[in-house]
Write a protein that binds this DNA or RNA. Structure first.
Lengths: 204, 204
DNA sequence: GTCTATACTCGGATAGAC
DNA sequence: GTCTATCCGAGTATAGAC
């Protein structure tokens, strides 16, 4: 329910709930946050909140989806860029921002674990999100490669996957080492992928 | 209890439990496996099994630790190698093996999420394991660099971190895409790090 | 060391009134 | 749409017998 957006009121409320819940998880972190906790923050009862979602699991996946939407609203270049430099700059901005919100990093990781179960609502989310991200990145990388900015030997699709893997993996390390400079790590990967001599890679 | 290894019997039994539990998670997967489930597989009651561990959480962390021990028993070169080629070959073997055991990949990811909580027993595990792995890799990479096999511009410690990040991140993708060729992805990273012209990198 | 039994907690789901 | 109330299941932890 609320899924096939009955009335505008319902939709708006759902959005409001998600924004608030997102802020709560961002601020307080997520160590097994309960629906009830979030409900209180929103000013609803547990049952009242769940009226807008099919289940707890769906709720949390939607929170993560909302994070993506918020991020992308401000940084479309992080995923759809005109050239490699723009992708690099835009994406690193998003990374720097997200690295400062450990609660959401934890939520991301936990739901990723849940996505191992094909029945879990996070499965579809991660599956689609991952493919979408990689496709867009691969496009930009392919163009950059044609323009001689990316090493010739590397498959753009694989490069995109690598970028995703480094991002996700760095987030895991971040859980244990909050001071880790995640953006720097990702920059290193960009440097490695760039054609030696072109762009900030140079070094050597 | 059982922690400060009272009698040999206790230790041996604990080991036996862990081996069996490891096999069960590997085979059946891990969607919220309960202590009771594992207990049955071991031929103990839930209370009987828990006699050997402080808590459920500790039990699962120990299962993961056992996996590492088993892996390393057969593939010490995956982490402590004489040169880059040996590291590459040895580590890829471990990766190929682990990629075929989704249940353990899920357990790994779930406990990684738990490690966001400093009180959780997985925190110490991931913290130490990560640092240890990176240190050893960095050593090998530094030597390889001195021998001209690794790109000069890259910091060995950072390269090691990158390898860890790609590994962990690829595992996350594996949860959703079991057919993903994780080893190939990691090989791509090795290729990127190697000095162009030296070793299997060449291409381009 | 191991079992049986139980106690207790947590939290998500649902029914039904308003 | 929202609340109150309740239910119910899961699952860990523990007490105490053998």
């Amino acid at each position: 329910m609320a899924r096939r957006g009955s009335y505008a009121k319902g939709i708006a409320k759902r959005e409001e709930i998600l924004r608030t819940a997102l802020a709560v998880v961002a601020r307080e972190g997520y160590h097994g946050a309960s629906v009830k906790e979030l409900a209180e923050a929103v000013g609803l009862s547990q049952a009242g909140l769940l009226h807008y979602f099919d289940s707890k699991d769906e709720l949390f996946v939607e929170i993560l989806r909302t994070r993506d939407e918020v991020d992308m609203a401000g940084h479309a270049e992080a995923v759809q860029a005109a050239d490699l430099a723009e992708l690099r700059t835009g994406y690193l901005e998003v990374v720097r921002h997200n690295a400062r919100v450990p609660g959401l990093v934890e939520l991301f990781t936990r739901l990723a674990a849940d996505s191992a179960n094909p029945e879990h609502p996070s499965r579809a989310f991660f599956s689609e999100r991952g493919a979408d991200l990689r496709d867009r990145w691969a496009d930009t990388i392919a163009e950059a490669q044609a323009a001689g900015q990316v090493r010739a030997g590397i498959d753009p699709a694989l490069a995109a996957r690598l970028l995703q893997a480094v991002s996700d993996g760095a987030q895991m390390q971040l859980l244990v080492e909050p001071e880790l400079d995640m953006a720097h790590l990702i920059e290193t990967l960009f440097d490695l992928m760039q054609e030696p001599g072109a762009g900030p890679a140079a070094g050597g």
